[in-house]
Computed example of a mutant assay.
Amino acid sequence: MKISEFNSSVLPIQQKIFRLSKRLLTSSDAAEDASQEVMIKLWNKRHELNEINNIEAFAMTITKNHCLDQLKLKANQNLRLVHTNYENKSADPQKQLEAKQELNTVEAMIKTLPETQRLVLHLRQIEGYEYDKICEIMDMKPKAVRVTLSRARKNLVERISKQHQNENRA
């Protein structure tokens, strides 16, 4: 693959690589490092990329695996899984505070999901990937992806409902 082909096919997905890295590693610095590492890996494999059908799914798979490896390292045990791409531009500080608290609650609930559910939910809901790409990235069958996503959503809905019931009692 020539430099121009690499630039046109790989560079446009760099932000998605960063977002997935940030989702998995939490820290912007760690996500930037991971994104750079993934881009280096892709650059080093540029001659093999012509043989790959879906470069974006391949890149996201490399990103997922790299980030999971980083989480397993002893030096990165303090990293946690959260989603912080939410920004509310509402003028009312009270509404901003409530929205932030709700987001923190949902993030905490997402954090407690099993790893596969958490990743499938992120890829579908945050990144907007189609099921076939998620199947490639996660190395899962389509039915398994749908079931996993359904279970993750159901789990979150149950937890949120339970939370609201507890708040209404108090």
Rank of each mutant, 00 (worst) to 15 (best):
Ile3Thr: 10
Ser4Leu: 14
Glu5Leu: 15
Asn7Glu: 15
Asn7His: 11
Ser8Met: 13
Ser8Leu: 12
Val10Asp: 09
Ile13Arg: 00
Lys16Phe: 03
Lys16Thr: 02
Ser21Trp: 06
Thr26Glu: 06
Thr26Trp: 06
Ser28Cys: 12
Ala30His: 10
Glu32Leu: 14
Asp33Val: 08
Asp33Gln: 13
Ser35Pro: 08
Glu37Gly: 11
Glu37Lys: 09
Val38Trp: 01
Val38Ala: 01
Leu42Lys: 01
Leu42Pro: 10
Arg46Asp: 12
Glu48Thr: 11
Leu49Ile: 05
Leu49His: 09
Asn50Pro: 03
Glu51Pro: 01
Asn54Met: 03
Glu56Phe: 01
Phe58Val: 05
Met60Leu: 15
Thr63Phe: 01
Thr63Asp: 02
Asn65Ile: 11
Asn65Gln: 14
Asn65Ala: 10
His66Met: 09
Cys67Leu: 07
Asp69Phe: 10
Leu71Trp: 04
Lys72Val: 03
Leu73Gln: 13
Ala75Gly: 03
Asn78Ile: 12
Asn78Tyr: 14
Arg80Gln: 04
Arg80Asn: 02
Leu81Val: 04
Leu81Pro: 00
Val82Glu: 07
His83Arg: 07
Asn85Gln: 09
Tyr86Gln: 07
Tyr86Cys: 02
Tyr86Lys: 06
Tyr86Ser: 04
Glu87Asp: 07
Ser90Glu: 15
Ala91Asn: 15
Pro93Asp: 13
Gln94His: 12
Lys95Ala: 10
Lys95Thr: 07
Lys100Ala: 12
Lys100Ser: 09
Leu103Cys: 05
Leu103Gln: 11
Leu103Asp: 05
Leu103Arg: 08
Thr105Gln: 12
Thr105His: 10
Val106Glu: 01
Glu107Pro: 02
Met109Arg: 03
Lys111Gly: 10
Thr112Glu: 15
Leu113His: 01
Thr116Ser: 13
Gln117Tyr: 02
Leu119Ser: 01
Val120Leu: 06
Val120Asn: 03
Val120Ser: 06
Leu121Cys: 09
His122Ala: 13
Leu123Ala: 13
Arg124Glu: 10
Arg124Ala: 14
Gln125Trp: 00
Ile126Ala: 05
Gly128Asp: 09
Gly128Thr: 05
Tyr129Gly: 01
Glu130Leu: 04
Tyr131Ile: 15
Lys133Phe: 03
Lys133His: 04
Cys135His: 10
Cys135Phe: 11
Glu136Cys: 06
Glu136Phe: 06
Glu136Tyr: 02
Ile137Val: 15
Ile137Arg: 00
Ile137Gly: 02
Met138Gly: 10
Lys141Tyr: 13
Pro142Gln: 09
Pro142Met: 07
Ala144His: 08
Arg146Val: 01
Arg146Pro: 00
Val147His: 03
Thr148Gln: 03
Thr148Ser: 04
Thr148Leu: 04
Arg151His: 04
Ala152Lys: 02
Arg153Ile: 04
Lys154His: 05
Lys154Tyr: 02
Leu156Phe: 01
Val157Asp: 06
Glu158Asp: 10
Glu158Ala: 02
Arg159Gly: 11
Ile160Asn: 02
Ser161Gly: 10
Ser161His: 09
Ser161Tyr: 08
Gln163Ser: 09
Gln165Ser: 04
Asn166Arg: 13
Arg169Asp: 08
Ala170Pro: 04
Ala170Trp: 03
